[in-house]
Design a protein around this nucleic acid. Sequence first.
DNA 1: ATGACAACCTGTGGGC
DNA 2: TGCCCACAGGTTGTCA
Length: 270
Amino acid sequence: MPELPEVETTRRGIEPHVLGHKVASVIVRDRRLRWAIPPGFETQLVGRTITGTRRRAKYLLMDSDSGCLLVHLGMAGSLRMVAPDEQPRKHDHVDIEFDNGLVLRYHDPRRFGSMHWLTGSAHPLLDHLGLEPLLDAFDGAYLYQQARRRGSAIKLFIMDAKVVVGVGNIYANEALFMAGIRPDRPANKVSKARYEALAMAIKDVLATAIDVGGTTLRDFVGGDGKAGYFAQSLQVYGRGGEFCYRCKVKRLKEIRQSNRASVFCITCQR
DNA sequence: ATGACAACCTGTGGGC
DNA sequence: TGCCCACAGGTTGTCA
């Protein structure tokens, strides 16, 4: 489920319930995530007090007085606060109970996600990550410069985490539509001006999705944890074969790039 | 360095 | 109804 907006929404949703609270107990029901949760994990967490939460790319970080919890939701994971008496369901792999009685519950059917306890705040997974798209440093000039020797398709280029983080399949499709660029155009054959438009489109679509997610996921306690950004009206994603909202003449074309669906309008995107 | 692709999993929905 | 297949919001690692 999670792209960057949902991870950010999740972070904002859980922060008020964990900040300043101490971990009372940890239950791991299934250690087999993307990387197996090591045996000492529970012991390391218990007694720690959460001092802050952060997001880097699609990673959620919870800092404590000593060490840091690093969480990734993979393709289908979710994290929400539940009451202590709520019965765990299938794929509820980890519970972290706090001294306020609330439980942070990790759910991940496909187990593509991960959880690591960091002694400091560094981890190899966080090295080599590209720019955060919402920072000012991420702009058209940066993209243009990065694209110089990239002959691959622009969609794959903007989904490359070494270039810019957090642009998943949905938002890559949407941003390219907004910027009027075909997803299969070689990255090094796009002008600087069009990269300016693309950088703005990426910021726009992500920021808008965070806003929408924020309103839908207001209450994490007892909430259902569903993705809020479904409320957002998608222009192309999932609309292959349907009429383009912009020109209203052509039907959207759907192709596959690296085995991921790409949808675009052959008239509006060049 | 770049790029193509398999791999890690389960659930769901469409076609027959 | 049931079965089989394609596909799903991500990322890493391997190999050419």
